[in-house]
Simulated scan of single mutants.
Amino acid sequence: MKDRVLILGGRGRIGSAVANDILTYTEAQITITGRSPETGKAVSLSSGGREQFLVLDLTEVDKLREAIAQSDLVIHCAGPFHYRDTQVLEICIEQGVNYLDVSDHRSYTNKALNLHEKAVDAGVTAIINTGIFPGISNSLVRQGIEQFDVAEKIHLSYLVSGSGGAGVTVMRTTFLGLQHSFQAWINGEWRLIQPYSDREDINFPQPFGVSGVYWFDMPETITLPYSFPTVKTVITKFGSIPDFYNHLTWIAAHIFPKWLMQRRYMIEFLSHVSHSMTDFTNIFTGIGVAVRAEVTGKKDGETVVYASTLLHNNTAVASGIGTGSIAKLLLEGKLKRPGVSPVEAVLTTELFTQIMQERQIQINSQWVKL
């Protein structure tokens, strides 16, 4: 019998990319969900009947529980995760079904990690924060960490062109990330950071070039210090192309009244306006992504930097690769790790290298002396 994969939110841009990766690299039968029959009309007929659509709202708990019980793997792509509870994960643990998600906010990450022992007891492998960032980015960090005698600092820089090929949900995620200050691990202590502050100009590979990135609240800011205890500093920064989007986002983070940015109607307004703008600028900038992971530490008595970069011409597709490739490993039984874990704690560098090569994703790494 074929493996059965349930993808919640599977008609979104990210969910669709995850489904496409799984259909391409496995023989699994996929069920994707959406809240209305209209969203199911776009289900591809080229999958040989391996893809079907289920009308499902996450508030329909009995229907959700039934769908999970009929699955071998559940992939949660129904963001934004700022608003999500862990109901899906809890049902997976109850039913003994493995779980992945593309979650990208620390509030959800913390709630999910609190279920670790329950997942261990149930024998369920639950891997959170898969995708491109967080996700592939975390594995780039692990690969870098393993090059050192002692790793001390992690600096992650993310750059997205236009919309990145994603939908309005990702725009919501961006503006939701501007609402509050957040804790970051700096010089061995937790410090409060203002979102979209402290611009740095990073030299990304072409076609991106030198571009600005800013502090942004990401779950790897809290998971990486625990996954790699010798590290004393973890920096996560994000930027957009064209650069004027960075300035508009800075204004939203620092000039707009905080009470206004915390209203859902304002988030919706900004998200839809931004998505409309990127529909136009995508023509000129593309929808690609660049990830740069720098690890600083001691190697043979010297302090050096190991820098890795990864590029892709479609951010949503890259996210689909990150999650889809891990789904394949889970279905093949190559990634059994009961508990709830961020991707960097589970995926070995050997397996990471294998799945990136399988998908012809090139990673460029180099040593940089200070």
Rank of each mutant, 00 (worst) to 15 (best):
S274P: 07
F269E: 12
V368D: 00
Q147W: 08
T173D: 02
L54P: 00
K299L: 15
F352R: 02
Q52A: 02
L64C: 13
E51N: 10
R172Y: 07
I255M: 12
H82E: 09
W215C: 02
R84W: 11
T31L: 03
V97I: 15
Y214S: 03
G123Q: 11
L45G: 10
F280W: 14
I30N: 03
H254N: 06
T174R: 06
D121W: 12
F228S: 02
G135V: 05
T296V: 14
I321D: 00
R106W: 11
T223A: 03
G209P: 06
A69N: 14
M266H: 07
M356K: 05
L45D: 15
G333A: 02
A307E: 01
E51V: 08
N246K: 04
T109M: 12
F182K: 05
R191W: 14
V88C: 11
Q143H: 09
K334S: 04
R359F: 08
Y108S: 03
D279P: 01
S157I: 04
A28F: 09
T109G: 13
T221L: 08
L270A: 09
Y99A: 06
T303K: 09
N203G: 00
I363V: 13
S227T: 14
R50K: 14
G165S: 09
Y306F: 12
R84F: 06
Q29N: 12
H254C: 04
G162D: 04
T309N: 14
I136W: 10
A307D: 05
L351A: 07
V102M: 06
T26P: 06
A119W: 04
G339R: 07
V343C: 01
L370W: 06
T349E: 06
D201V: 15
P37L: 12
V317I: 15
W190V: 13
Q52H: 02
A318N: 05
V160P: 04
T109D: 10
S341G: 05
R50G: 01
T278I: 01
I22P: 00
G324M: 11
L311S: 03
P80V: 13
T26I: 09
T303C: 13
L248F: 13
P205Y: 05
L351W: 02
I321K: 11
A166Y: 04
D149N: 08
R263T: 14
G167A: 08
M356I: 06
K334Y: 11
A78E: 11
F81W: 08
I154V: 14
N364Q: 14
N20E: 14
E302G: 01
L260D: 11
T173V: 12
S47T: 09
Y214F: 15
V160L: 08
E332M: 08
K299G: 00
V291N: 00
Y226P: 01
I22K: 06
Q183F: 04
P37H: 10
S197Y: 05
S274W: 11
T59D: 13
A293C: 10
